[in-house]
Amino acid sequence: MDKVELMIDGKRIDGRTADQLRPISIVANPIRNAAGSAYIEWGANKIFAAVYGPKEALPKHTSDPEKAVIKCRYTMAPFSSVEEHGKPGMNRRAIEISKVTAEVFENVILLNKFPGSEIDIYIEVMQSDGGTRAAGITCAAVALAASGIPMRDLPYAVSAGKVGDTVILDLNKIEDNYSDADVPVAICPRKKEVSLLQMDGNLTKDEFDTALNMIINSGSYISQLQIDALKKPYEKIEERYL
């Protein structure tokens, strides 16, 4: 593959600085049938997350008498990419993302409140432009909070990476394709704990530290967007009576 110039005079191909996020907007509860749902636009990514349950875990052998089980399904619509028509359903990549996403939420949901039950999280990528797993996790956290399922924290996720010698935050699709490293991370912001970590490419320890710092520093902004999305419906109603 030809090398593409991803950084010119300190600016990225879309004009961002190294540690700048793409524009993000989140809406809570767009899907009325779900117990909780959310829709996120993160750059050109457009993703729904919907939560159903807790409900009786079926088939029975999947249930745990001590706690709830999380069943997560991440999929991409066949029309989500600028390139060719995709295959519908789950491929190996989608199965892996579903697994690590479920594990992010196992870490924060008070699972022992619902023994024997399952909580279903559906993440549907309608349009993709790099970083969909991170945006999906950020979106699903809002859907879970909106459903009333108790959680000890409200996780967010974002990826960092490297182009040439520069560590950058929140890679878009082109950057992702030509980058030297990609590190998607989910953070539980209250204690700044890492609950998703994947990486491929090459990074020195210093570069990894820089990447993680960027991810943590971007947290207060992403968290605030999640909180605003959750509070907005209530504040709108309050405004009516001010």
Binding site: A44, E84, Q127
Partner: peptide, 26 residues
Amino acid sequence: GNMPNAEGSAEVTLGNTTVIAGVKVD
């Protein structure tokens, strides 16, 4: 046109039913 990565797209609501259609040409 709400999903511009697709060649064509549309979101339709019919009361509380919502569907999104996307077209790819290959």
